[in-house]
Each structure stands twice: as C-alpha cells, then as structure tokens.
Computed example of a mutant assay.
Amino acid sequence: MEELKEIKSVAIVPFTLMSSSISAVLGIIYALILILVLGAVAVFLPSQSHIISSLLMTASVAIIIILPVGSFLFSVLTSFLMAFIYNLLVPRIGGIKLGMVEMKEIRSVPVIPLSLMASSIYTILTFLIILIVAPLLVVVLQGAALASISTSNSMVGLEGLGAIGLIGIVVMVIGIPILVFVFTFIYTALMALVYNFLAPKMGGIRLKFNTIKDNSFEIKKIKPIPLALISAVVMTILNFIFSLPTLAMYFATGNVPGGLGYFLGNTIGMFIVIFILYAIMALLYNYLRPFVGGIELKLE
C-alpha cells in the first residue's frame, strides 16, 4: 500500500560528501574518456606533428587533474547550498513528498511540492550567481565599449553606458531568476507527471533505508537498474517533447536525414546515455556509502 512521506530535512554534510564524491569519480571517468579521444586523434596525426602531439599529451595530464578536482569542488559548493536552501524552505513552502510502497519503492511524486521546491532552489541559486556575474559582465561590456569610443564623443558614450549598465544589471538580477523559476517549475511538473504515469506500470525508484533514530533514515542502497530505467525513460520522453519544434523545423525545410538523425539522437541516444549515467551513479553510491556515509533524510 502506498504511503505518503514528506522530506522534512536533508542532513547537509552527508549529502554534500556523497554528492561531491560521486562527482569526483564521474570527473575521473569523463577525463579518461577525453584522454582516449585525444589519444585517438594523436594516432592519426602526421608523424612530423610532434608539437601537436606534445600539446595533446600536456592537455591529457591537465584534464586528469582538473576535471575530478573541479567536479569535486563545484559539487561541494552546489550540494551544500542545495541542502541548506532546502532545509530553509521546508517550513515555508513544504518539503518534497514521496509516495512510498513499504519504504522500498517510490511509486509516485506529488507534482506541486516537487515543482515548487525545485524551482525555488534553482531560482535562489541562479539569483546568487547573477549577483556576482552581472556586475562583472556589465563592467567587461562597458570596458569593451569604452575602448571603441573616440576621445571626441567619450562623454556621451559614458552617459549612455552608465544607463545601459544599470538597466542590464536590473534585467539580469530580476528577469533571469523569473525565467528560471517558470521553466524549472514546468519541466519538473512534467517530469513528475510522466514518472507518476510510468512508475505503477514499470516500477519506480527502489531504495533500501536504515533507520537512524525516530524519523531519520539513511539511504543504504539504491538499486541501479530501476533508477536507470525509469530515469532514462522519463528524461527521454521529456527531451523528445521539448525537441519537437526543432524536429518540425528539420522536416519543414525538407532536411529529412537531419531530422531523422536529430530524432534518433534525442530518443535512442538520450536513453542510452541517461541509462548508463544513472546506473553508474547508483553503483557509485552503493560502493561509496560504507566509506563516506549515505544520504540522511528526515521523513514524516
């Protein structure tokens, strides 16, 4: 029988540590793939192009260091902020709710709580980023414009640039977060609707919990195949829906081969990539949990 559970809080440190550890390992995998690609390119280079080969070798060494470290540090920041913001928002807008079957399978996800929380978190993160990026971007644009203004009309240019810069900051700080909220809400709502339609038919995400105390639980294990399968199907359907305008343009212009290639890439290609990625993430979670600890949730 399905029982509705609300995620009242997320333990910040375990969530951050697990997310960043998975991101670091994925960074290593991405780095190895890029190195293999660069190695394949180097094989086909002419033998006299030893300089290009050396550059590719140097790039490979940099990639194997930068990608995992960068992925880890970026994930530490974003994961910490997401968990922190989630815990702050729950008393105000309510937490994400999960329709659980025997505390083992997520059979449904109520649409509004998930959409409202996801869009609120991403809007706040976007707002924080823009507060830093917007002034820097405006300064760079003004600097580039000033460099092109001649001495004779520099005063007029400065007055115009000041107004444009102020308007640009206001538009970015207010307009972009609003767009992020609307798009994220719509996308997440569609994702929940598709999940709720498919999960009873093909099975939802399956989890194994450890009881810590009272209503606090640790995610002990995530079954890779159910997670990968439902995630791949849901995201493939959504990606196909949002790609319909582009697909229509291909066929409207008579580019049938291009349209077919685009269609296959957004269905079969998307399904394969998402399935593999989420299966790897679940396997990494199960492997890393004994070492770094699992994600802890308070469910009521």
Results as ranks from 00 to 15, higher is better:
residue 182 V to E: 12
residue 273 V to H: 12
residue 262 Y to H: 14
residue 119 S to F: 02
residue 203 G to A: 08
residue 294 G to R: 06
residue 80 F to H: 13
residue 212 I to K: 08
residue 24 A to M: 15
residue 239 N to T: 11
residue 153 N to K: 09
residue 24 A to N: 11
residue 45 L to T: 09
residue 209 F to W: 09
residue 232 A to K: 07
residue 136 L to G: 08
residue 229 L to P: 10
residue 152 S to K: 11
residue 182 V to A: 15
residue 133 V to D: 07
residue 241 I to G: 05
residue 204 G to T: 07
residue 133 V to C: 04
residue 165 G to D: 01
residue 96 I to Q: 07
residue 189 A to Y: 10
residue 279 A to I: 02
residue 3 E to Q: 13
residue 148 S to F: 03
residue 146 L to I: 09
residue 69 V to N: 01
residue 79 S to C: 01
residue 253 T to E: 05
residue 113 P to R: 05
residue 97 K to A: 05
residue 23 S to F: 14
residue 199 A to K: 05
residue 100 M to D: 05
residue 185 F to G: 06
residue 282 A to T: 09
residue 275 F to D: 08
residue 74 F to K: 14
residue 121 I to C: 10
residue 244 L to M: 10
residue 22 I to A: 06
residue 67 L to R: 02
residue 103 M to H: 12
residue 205 I to Q: 01
residue 5 K to N: 05
residue 149 I to D: 08
residue 193 L to I: 15
residue 71 S to L: 09
residue 247 L to E: 00
residue 121 I to W: 10
residue 228 A to M: 08
residue 215 N to P: 08
residue 281 M to R: 11
residue 46 P to C: 05
residue 154 S to Y: 12
residue 255 N to C: 06
residue 155 M to V: 11
residue 80 F to I: 01
residue 296 E to G: 06
residue 291 F to Q: 12
residue 33 I to C: 12
